[in-house]
Amino acid sequence: MSEPLKFTYSVDGDNFTSAGQASVQVKKVLRRLGLDPETIRRVSIAMYEGEINMVIHAGGGEAEVLIHEDCVEIILRDKGPGIADIEQAMQEGFSTAPDNIRSLGFGAGMGLPNMKRYTDDMQIESQVGVGTTITMRVNL
């Protein structure tokens, strides 16, 4: 087994305008590596949803993307408020997004469900007051 390619990004929690930059970068990398368009799309969307969640709900964080021989792994870590009830957060339509965020088109409560749907595996570890780590895997 060769070492996985590894990319790390810091996700700025204050800058809503540039939110999504890490995902756009990853998309470029995957294109250059010649992955098929549907896989790129799934990775890009899942990562973007997670990245946006870190900006909106957790004040930023860091993203790590590992390209293994058989899968792409995305790890999102933040030191935000954490998620008290993960099962509830995973439900379509559940959102705590404030009005100013909703007016931008976010807050439909579809981000976490999308992340689950577009990936082959997703694990959420979260502790209230400490932070959240989400690990996603898309098989190649």
């Binding site: 809503f16 305008t17 939110a19 999504g20 368009p37 549907e38 799309r41 969307i45 973007y48 949803e49 931008l104 088109g105 976010f106 807050g107 439909a108 409560g109 579809m110 981000g111 469900p113 999308n114 749907r117």
Partner: peptide
């Protein structure tokens, strides 16, 4: 609603919307 679009739109679709923010 952006997450609906990401969940439901398909590649190469035309996306019709009235949202104009940079996201």
């Amino acid at each position: 609603l952006l997450s609906w679009v990401m969940g439901r739109a398909e590649a190469d679709n035309v996306w019709i919307t009235i949202m104009t923010n940079v996201n």
